[in-house]
Nucleic acid binder design. Structure first.
Lengths: 195, 195
DNA sequence: ATATTATGTAAGTAAGCACTTACTTACATT
DNA sequence: AATGTAAGTAAGTGCTTACTTACATAATAT
């Protein structure tokens, strides 16, 4: 049944993401899923194929794109807070996938799997957003710099929390950090330079 | 000779960090080092032992600790810029090690290898620094929050650049980002909240 | 000159890997 | 009662892995 298939996918995701592709054996996966190794191969033609299915069954960033297309208010504080919230959830839910991505991005066997389409789309949409904020006079620095600043701050936090699993970073700090970043973006750098 | 040994270590570092521990074979390493597999085992008692040696031969953070102990001027702008520069160099030089760390931190075979002592020391020293800045009235937010903000911004950048190898992040942006972060730290959050 | 040292080559071992084959059990459908 | 489906078990294939043994060779040290 579909149930068995799903159990295999879940176990595979868990193991691939913690141990990496090469270190995870089909026996491991079968054991964790509570089924026999043969059943695994009846459902998936190869380990590699299972990996692909496991990867592609996970990453869903529609929420993000939907938000950009429908829910923007152009109140920068509200928009960026919401956005950071989406990213938080996305990373939280997909931490395993992200780890998998980092662990195996240099492996020849795996390299072609990707999520760059989504990545590019989000980048384009957010560049448009920051450009608009710039045109409206809300921010004075270069829009691309601001986009980078916002995303790499958020990303830095999420990376530490969900991939390196540093336990001392909570949502309190996250919210404070996002707020501080937004304030920084709204502040003109040229006025505060070298004084 | 010592030369052969070093060639093996270099090749091992290169391969472990790009492919991960499990996916790297001793044959690979020997090939890359230009020596025979047997010679590898004459120099290192096992693959695991070679891994340990390769890891421990790399990470040197004395510069950082020296800086904290000798070169602080308590001009926050200068100090944090210098500090971010040190981190930049450290990550640049040790990108492979960092990747290795991330790739294999969940592997049972590997987990005990560590660099947490250095990490804790730097954290303690920088907390003292930010506390002092707070006492001097240079910053008004909680010192620990400020330390986190500074480090996770810098870390987010370095992670993207050296571990994920995003090519669009240059030193221009890095310097701008550091400056913006320092400005943000010097700005009191409570004054700019929800207005 | 000769012993020692650092390497190489060639061959092999035991284990583990992804994956297969052949056959079985259990339950549901016709 | 006959057939189909989804699973299991047990054994085995061929390949790769970490690691070993035995012997040869060239340079270096005594």
């Amino acid at each position: 049944m579909n149930d068995t298939r799903q159990k295999i996918i879940d176990a595979a995701k868990e193991l691939f993401s913690t141990k990496g592709y090469a270190a995870t054996t089909t026996k491991d996966i079968a054991g964790k899923a509570g089924i026999s190794e043969v059943t695994l191969f009846r459902h998936f033609e190869s380990k590699r194929n299972l990996f692909m299915v496991a990867v592609h069954s996970t990453f869903e960033a529609d929420i993000l794109i939907n938000f950009f297309e429908k829910d923007l208010t152009y109140d920068i504080e509200r928009d960026l807070k919401k956005l950071s919230g989406f990213f938080y959830t996305l990373y939280k839910d997909n931490a395993k996938l992200m780890k998998m991505h980092i662990k195996d991005k240099d492996s020849e066997e795996i390299s072609e799997f990707s999520k760059p389409k989504v990545e590019m789309k989000v980048r384009t949409l957010s560049d448009e957003y920051f450009q608009k904020m710039h045109d409206m006079g809300v921010i004075s620095d270069e829009p691309i710099m601001c986009r980078k600043y916002f995303f790499s701050n958020v990303f830095g936090f999420l990376m530490r929390k969900f991939i390196l699993e540093k336990t001392d970073d909570g949502t309190d700090y996250f919210n404070w950090m996002v707020e501080k970043t937004i304030t920084a973006i709204k502040t003109d750098s040229s006025k505060t330079q070298k004084g």
